[in-house]
Structure formats: structure tokens, C-alpha cells
Nucleic acid binder design. Structure first.
Lengths: 202, 202
DNA sequence: GACTAATCTTACTTTCCAGTAAGTCTACTT
DNA sequence: AAGTAGACTTACTGGAAAGTAAGATTAGTC
């Protein structure tokens, strides 16, 4: 299908050059057609970019969701979701570059698209964190605010660790996810258990 | 000094609009002068952007470094550094937006500038993590690879938590830093102590 | 009060590229 | 073989904004 081919080409070019440096003519070349065809199928450059972001973000969200959607314990589900995320990034780096580096700057429509995807994942993560806490049986020392905090930190750490992963290509996605789980989950659980660090009084 | 005023104006406009949507004429207006003056002092639009990034990143790195540069225990230093980071973000949001949202997409020169600043902080954080481990007395179960991992996750979490902070403006920077310390530091320490999570065997 | 040096502006040129009008080519129909 | 519909291209237009040439304004000097 033509549209798909065009989006494929656009994804590569956008990921490599960024939105503004990417020229529609070059995208058309990559797709093996001429510029007006791009406009016939996708309407405008911005719309084309949105199509790329949408496709990539949906693929990512779906990958995470399906991996995390078993009936098992929350921490296991979270680990699977994170593994799927790291696997996605390792496999389809263009998509990740697009979502992570290129898209944030752009216009309303694009930011909205991206925000929605991120929020969607964040909700899912927050949910797993919440269940993890409830299940632990500790008397809910963490409220909603804290759950959001943990989710935000976790997602941010995962984002950033994609760079680390790039420098350690021998490390399998599941192992990266495991490292992260150990860092975050244990800490969270133990804080719930009453263990806390605080600065000395002056 | 003229140059400083121009950079001030540019920072505001770039942070609000992004590099491409920002028009040099508008920056000149904000600085109360006309466009050719901007070119006289800064040479080109890109150079102007680089000047902004450089100034903001230096301010941020300095804030972190000075806060973390006491002779105290590593964890206390780390906490102070993080507090300074969150305080900086809360206070000078334009700079943070610039560094966090606008700059990543741009050209070589800019990415290099930014990368250097990030790396510089990352090294410092990694160093504190390493000392924290050594001091804990545990027999170095974490190697350099692990230290880098923790540092990367920590910095990424902090980046991302600036968004959380924006939604919880009543939370003081030190409290945000404290939350993060509790999440990461305790987890890391306990993992060192041998506590580990791993997925069940199938 | 003419001279000149520094500072600044108006108004222009240039380049680049998104978007499009008009026409060509191919393949299929009758 | 003439007609026509769909897919596609060449070659253009329009506009936006980076960068600049040339001149105006101000202030300080003799």
C-alpha cells in the first residue's frame, strides 16, 4: 500500500534529519515517487509527520500493553512491559528517535498526539505500581500523589536508559528491565516498609 | 551589557516558540533593538541559540556542582545536588525548557554543547553513586557498568520528574529530591545487600 | 558649529522549500 | 485505433524569514 510506503520513508528521513531539516522531496525519493504523490496521499508535511508519530506511538504503546497484560502479579507484569519497551527501542530505533528526540519540539497537533501516548503508558504503569503496593499488604503509606511520582520516575528512567542500552548492545532488553526493576521496585517496597533516608538535622 | 540583554530576550522567545518558530525580528523586539544589532553581536541565529544553551547549561551544571560539593557523605551530597537541580528548574523554567525540550532536536553544534553538559553532570552523579557504594562497605557487587546504569536512571528520573513537579507546585525542591533519594538510594543499597527481584522460572 | 566615530534602523536581497497547476504516460475499454 | 481514467512527473509559484547594504541618528571632540 502506497501510504504505508510513504510513511516508512518519512520515518527514516525524519528520524535522521529532524522535522525541519527533512525535505519532502527527499522523502519522496526514498519512497521512489515524486513530491506531489506525497501530497496526494498525506495532504501536508505536518500531517505526514503526525502520521509517523501516530503509527510509532501506537506500536510502542501496544507492545507495552500486550506484554504487561497477563493475569500475573503486578511486578511481573511491569517487568514484562518494561522488557517489551526496551525490546521495541532496540529493534525499531527510528521510531524511538522520532518519539523521543524529534517530536517533542513540534506543533500543537504533534505534542498532543505524543502526550496522549505517554499519558496512556503512564496510567498503565501507575496502575501496576498501585496494585503492587496494595498486594504487598503494607497499609497504603503511599497515596495517589506518591504513585504518580513513582510512575513518573520509572518512565523517565526507562526513557533515559535507552541511551545506556545503546552503549551496551550486548545487554538483552529483559536484563535491562530487570536491572531497573531491582533499582526501583525494591526501593519502593522498602520505603513502604518504613525504611527511609533523610538528611541529618542541622 | 548588550549581548546579555539579547541572550535574555532570545532565551524567552526560544523557550516559548522553539528554534524554528522563533523569528529573529521578534527576539530583537524583545531586546528593544532591531535585527541587525542581533547579527552584529551574535553573528547568526544558530550562534545565538548556542549562546543561550551554553549559558543555561553552565548555570545548571554550576548550581548542581556547587550544591554537591561539600565534604559530607555521598548520599547527602547527592541529595543537595538534586535539590539544587529541582530548585533551578522551578526557578528558571525558560532555561529548563530550552535545555530539555528545544535543544535536543537541533544541529551538531547544539547537540554537542548539550551532550557535554549532561555528561558532566552524569559523571558527577556516577562518582557520588560509586562513593556511596564503597562507603556502604558492601564488597563491590556493582561494577562500573552498574554504576553507570544507576547514574543514567537517576538522571533520567530527575529529568522526567520536572514534569511531575510542575503539577505539584506546593512541593518544595528538597522534598522532591528526598522522594527520589528514597526511591533510588534505598533500592540500590538493598540490592547491594543481596536483596533481589527476579522473574519466576518457567 | 563643523567633523567623525559609534550605534542603530530602514528597506532590501537571497535562499529555500512547501505546496500546486498543468500536462504526460500507461493500461485498459469498446 | 481512438477514447478515457488513474497514476505520476515536471516545472512552477508564493511566501517566509535569514542575513546585509546603505544610510540615519546620536554623542562626543576640536
Amino acid at each position: 500500500m502506497r501510504e504505508r510506503e510513504i510513511v516508512d520513508a518519512a520515518l527514516r528521513v525524519f528520524a535522521q534529519r529532524g522535522y525541519h531539516a527533512a525535505v519532502v522531496d527527499e522523502i519522496a525519493d526514498h519512497a521512489g515517487i515524486s513530491k506531489p504523490m506525497v501530497y496526494l496521499y498525506l495532504g501536508s508535511k505536518e500531517n505526514l509527520f503526525v502520521a509517523c508519530v501516530r503509527r510509532s506511538s501506537q506500536a510502542l504503546v501496544t507492545a507495552f500493553r500486550e506484554a504487561a497484560d497477563s493475569g500475573d502479579a503486578p511486578e511481573l507484569r511491569l517487568w514484562r512491559g518494561l522488557s517489551a519497551f526496551f525490546a521495541f527501542v532496540a529493534e525499531d530505533r527510528d521510531s524511538w528517535v522520532m518519539l523521543h528526540r524529534q517530536a517533542p519540539e513540534q506543533s500543537e497537533a504533534i505534542t498532543a498526539e505524543l502526550e496522549q501516548a505517554r499519558e496512556s503508558v503512564m496510567r498503565e504503569v501507575a496502575d501496576l505500581v498501585r496494585r503492587g503496593i496494595d498486594e504487598g499488604g503494607a497499609d497504603d503509606r503511599l497515596g495517589e500523589v506518591d504513585v504518580d511520582f513513582v510512575a513518573q520516575a520509572l518512565v523517565g528512567a526507562a526513557d533515559s536508559l535507552t541511551d545506556w542500552m545503546e552503549q551496551h548492545p550486548q545487554e538483552a532488553p529483559e536484563r535491562v528491565a530487570l536491572r531497573l526493576m531491582n533499582m526501583i521496585w525494591i526501593g519502593m517496597r522498602d520505603v513502604l516498609g518504613g525504611e527511609m533516608w533523610s538528611p541529618p538535622q542541622e
